[in-house]
Design a protein around this nucleic acid. Structure first.
Length: 578
RNA sequence: GCACCCGUAGCUCAGCUGGAUAGAGCGUUGGCCUCCGGAGCCAAAGGUCAGAGGUUCGAAUCCUCUCGGGUGCGCCA
């Protein structure tokens, strides 16, 4: 049990003993200022108001009733009725010893769930660009946290491999192959290939009509079109998977369930909506109406589920996917990591799915939106020419920039290659810069800031970790220098200790709210507290008492483990030296 | 027209289950290597929390309105 949970439980019991109703809690929080102790309970204020009692008096009674022996060294009432709690050093030390010997850094979730996470989901018609980055790495971080807490996670990469553009693309591919070109050569640059197909489509009437015809033939299962399509898809998927490897993202081939997979059931989904009277014909198309999402004038939201030409749109595909995920895969919670611009669409799809009974009524449907990546000018991130920035090129640049830094700043490395460091630092910097900002906001992409060793950046955290490793290498050479029981005497040690004990709580918060920046901020606080401690509290220097040395080594070890685990959950790698 | 998101230090961002004097980093200014990695640490300066009302013992946080910025909305995905 975490420190907070324990205090909460004890104070809650005390409140019951004081005759307070169950809905009034202790409102426990970390103390806002050091002189207020480690934790503060604000609940007496609210409770006093509800019971028409005097806040300070009630706080006194709560404190008298609370069983805090051995946990709290000192407690006092302050201000209008805050309860300030100073934890006992030996209590903290004991918890740290337990944590140090435990296999995991936090207890697993009390109720493990089957959770489905839809993320990355690039459009295969084009090369992956910066627009795909956020979904991919935010989703992956949340997935890792959920798994660490013991949930069963089903990853779903809902790749866009179907739709009107593919007629154009296979017509283009057909022309290339007809000219004797090998498919992987023709598709070496997907972006260029797409632009070329688009140009032909716009300028060449014969080509455009062939492209439109191919869409129909493809969807009807024509073998020739299907074969061309498959070639294109295979190469495009391979490209995405190469990016995933470079990004250290945990998606695999088995997680791909693309749009085309739902093609066979779309007709059935639409029929279901019509039968239930949810959808009806309107201006030639089949439209679902949602009075529950009406605007202030009572006009219901309208969603087209089948075009007037008989074709289907992505709303229908998403409904089919939801049914499969809930009723076939049995997901209890379904998370979508998709751009904020899709918010209305997701809302409509969720409402429709529930209304039509396509999902289990108990399933949680969550759209975790995120903002746009902006360039240094505050406008959407583009190349100088105004085109989209390819993800592959962005990542290469990150590694190249990191390599430059390593070459410029590092003296001699013992066991790690500069290439490995550059890769981990460069990729880590790009991911962390994104993950550390509140998901829902737009964020400004800035090479300089993300690769800095100062501030809330990946390199700073990785550096803090390498210092622990350096220390352990040194300790290994000293006879008798081994981690031992923790003793807390210095403020810097306390600061570290309290943070180390908070890790599990932070992970639960990330699992509940899907905000990885909470974990980033925590790790930054921990790294700062650790470097402060490391600066002030000598570990291996001459004249250090062996007991103190053993205690500080144990703290270092826990800090190292927590940093490495936390970064790993963000999909960021650490190294022994940098 | 309708709907959603966002306005916090010069810049980039935290804080928003309402709590005590609103926090970091960058940048600026000034300190700290006889010391486990100075790729570090410490300190100072810097704020009408967009504005106005309201709820409350208490509001950056909740409600309403206004201003400013962004995004989306029946035949792309």
């Amino acid at each position: 049990m975490s420190v907070r949970a324990l205090l909460d439980q004890r104070l809650r019991l005390a409140m019951r003993d004081c005759g307070l109703p169950a809905h009034l809690g202790p409102q426990l929080a970390r103390a806002s200022r050091p002189e207020f102790g480690d934790f503060q309970a604000n609940g007496a204020l609210a409770a006093a108001k509800a019971m028409k009692a005097k806040p300070r008096e009630l706080a006194e009674r709560m404190l008298a009733a609370a069983q805090l022996d051995g946990i709290v060294a000192r407690a006092e009432i302050a201000g209008p009725g805050f309860i300030n709690l100073h934890l006992a050093d030996d209590f903290l030390a004991r918890l740290l010893d337990d944590l140090g010997h435990a296999r995991r850094l936090c207890p697993p979730a009390e109720r493990p769930q089957r959770i489905l996470v839809d993320y990355s989901s690039p459009n295969l018609a084009k090369e992956m660009h910066v627009g795909h980055l956020r979904s991919t790495i935010i989703g992956d971080a949340v997935v890792r946290v959920l798994e660490y807490l013991g949930h069963e996670v089903i990853r779903q990469n809902h790749m866009g491999d179907w739709g009107t553009q593919f007629g154009m693309l296979i017509a283009e591919l057909e022309d290339h192959l007809g000219a004797g070109e090998a498919p992987d050569l023709a598709l070496a640059d997907l972006e260029q290939f797409y632009q070329s197909a688009k140009a032909h489509f716009d300028l060449d009437v014969e080509f455009a009509s062939r492209a439109r015809h191919y869409v129909v033939r493809l969807q009807a299962g024509d073998p020739h079109c299907r074969a061309l399509w498959q070639r294109f898809i295979d190469i495009s998927v391979a490209h995405s998977e190469a990016i995933y490897r470079q990004l250290n993202v945990s998606l695999t081939h088995a997680d791909i369930r693309p749009e085309s997979a739902y093609n066979p059931v779309l007709e059935e989904i639409v029929a279901l909506l019509v039968d239930q009277g949810i959808a009806r014909e309107d201006q030639g198309a089949l439209v679902a109406f949602l009075p529950e999402l009406a605007d202030q004038h009572g006009k219901p939201a309208a969603v087209i589920v089948r075009k007037s030409d008989g074709g289907y749109l992505y709303a229908t595909t998403d409904l089919a996917a939801l049914r499969y995920r809930s009723l076939v895969l049995g997901a209890e919670r379904i998370l979508y990591f998709i751009d904020a611009r899709q918010s209305l669409h997701m809302k409509q799809v969720f409402a429709l799915a529930r209304k039509a009974g396509l999902v289990d009524p108990a399933v949680a449907l969550e759209h975790h939106a995120f903002g746009t990546m902006l360039g240094p000018d505050g406008k959407p991130f583009k190349t100088r020419a105004g085109g989209t920035v390819k993800l592959a090129e962005l990542l290469d640049e990150a590694v190249a920039r990191a390599a430059q830094l390593v070459a410029a700043k590092n003296p001699e490395l013992m066991e790690t290659s500069p290439e490995e460091i550059a890769r981990k630092v460069g990729i880590g910097a790009v991911k962390y810069a994104d993950l550390s900002k509140t998901r829902t906001h737009d964020y400004v992409f800035d090479w300089e800031a993300m690769l800095s060793f100062d501030g809330n950046t990946a390199p700073y955290l990785q550096y803090a970790y390498t210092r622990t490793q350096s220390l352990f290498r040194r300790a290994a050479a000293i006879p008798g220098a081994a981690p031992g029981p923790v003793r807390i005497t210095e403020d810097a040690e306390r600061g570290c200790a309290l943070l180390l004990l908070e890790f599990g709580e932070i992970l639960r918060q990330v699992a509940d709210d899907a905000y990885p920046h909470v974990l980033c901020n925590y790790l930054y606080d921990l790294a700062s507290a650790f470097t402060g401690f490391y600066q002030q509290c000598p570990v291996l220097k001459d004249g250090i008492d062996p007991g103190v040395r053993a205690s500080r080594l144990a703290l270092c070890q826990l800090a190292a483990r927590t940093l490495a685990t936390g970064l790993d959950l963000l999909g960021i790698e650490v190294m022994a030296e940098m």
